[in-house]
Design a protein around this nucleic acid. Structure first.
Lengths: 165, 165
DNA sequence: ATTGTTAATGCGATTATTTGCAATAAGGAT
DNA sequence: ATCCTTATTGCAAATAATCGCATTAACAAT
């Protein structure tokens, strides 16, 4: 239970918020997944242990947990994914093509954050940034077929001027 | 028409995609707004000049235009906002509290992107990053009442242990 | 253990977004 | 100008996400 390291009850109480079984269940579900999960996956996991937990409660708490910095979310629409916020700030490089994540040396990013904060006195409170782009493999065209479904999923076919078979 | 600088017909054709009046209308609508706009605002603007343009077409093209790097989108859910992608890469600091944007010296960010690319050979194709956090004014508590509605909008009341009037 | 306060949940009803598919129309070729 | 291919649209139906409000239950205080 990674999230226990975060002392989430303490953080919630400190803000005047309450620790409910629903919130615990949601944190558990994300934690047990052990990777970045979509709302759908979270909902499915919850069906088992907490079948009565309401849809609206999930959405509300996902927002809440993000605000509390207990959970990090990144991505667009249905592809948005959540994970337990790590004690250690860390960042991701996510490939738009194949969806794979690459680690990212955090010192560099933290340095940028500090520099920005120093200059503009704006505090970036995100300890978990996601940068989207194209990974090495996809850039080289190495894995065209293997995971090229990203495009299809959003409904656009790749370029193919009229030319038979 | 800032977006004409981008040669969007060229980019679309290059990918085997088509330039339709609907796409033009959507780009125009975002452009005319002259600032980061929500789907709702885009829809409202389109009602006037292109009343027949379908909902689904708007959503599909917003995705499409982002993929084409003609439009940038950032933010969560209904707060997601779009703007015409500038020829010049630029980045934003957006305050979670009051929603205001602060400019951000882009050289620093570009340097980070280059460094990452060099190290991991991952190409961050985002020329428009949004960093969320707390701006100077809100951090100092200067404008509590003026724009503190951000919290209410998502349905949470600020901490206030029971104490009358 | 009981009580009071009010944050949080569940529910039903809206509203927002997505999807499948037939009909339409962009743009290359003749 | 006309034809052909197929990307894109509009529509209607399906899903997903949000909202208002009455009810429930955390938790601080007694």
């Amino acid at each position: 239970m990674t999230h226990n390291l975060l002392d989430y009850p303490g953080k919630m109480h400190a803000g005047g918020y309450r620790v409910t079984p629903q919130r615990k269940a949601i944190l558990d579900a994300i934690c047990e997944a052990g990777r970045r999960v979509t709302v759908e996956e979270i909902t499915l996991r919850l069906r088992k242990k907490s079948p009565t937990l309401n849809r609206a409660t999930i959405y509300r708490n996902l927002l809440f947990l993000q605000r509390m910095h207990l959970v990090n979310g990144a991505g667009d629409g249905k592809d948005k994914r959540f994970e337990i916020a790590s004690v250690e700030p860390h960042h991701h490089l996510i490939c738009r093509e194949c969806g794979r994540e690459t680690g990212l040396d955090r010192t560099r990013v933290e340095r940028l954050k500090r520099a920005i904060q120093k200059e503009s006195r704006f505090t970036i409170d995100d300890d978990h940034l996601c940068f989207f782009g194209i990974c090495r493999r996809c850039a080289s065209g190495a894995n065209r077929k293997s995971q090229a479904s990203a495009k299809q999923r959003t409904g656009w076919k790749p370029r193919r001027k009229h030319a038979s078979s």
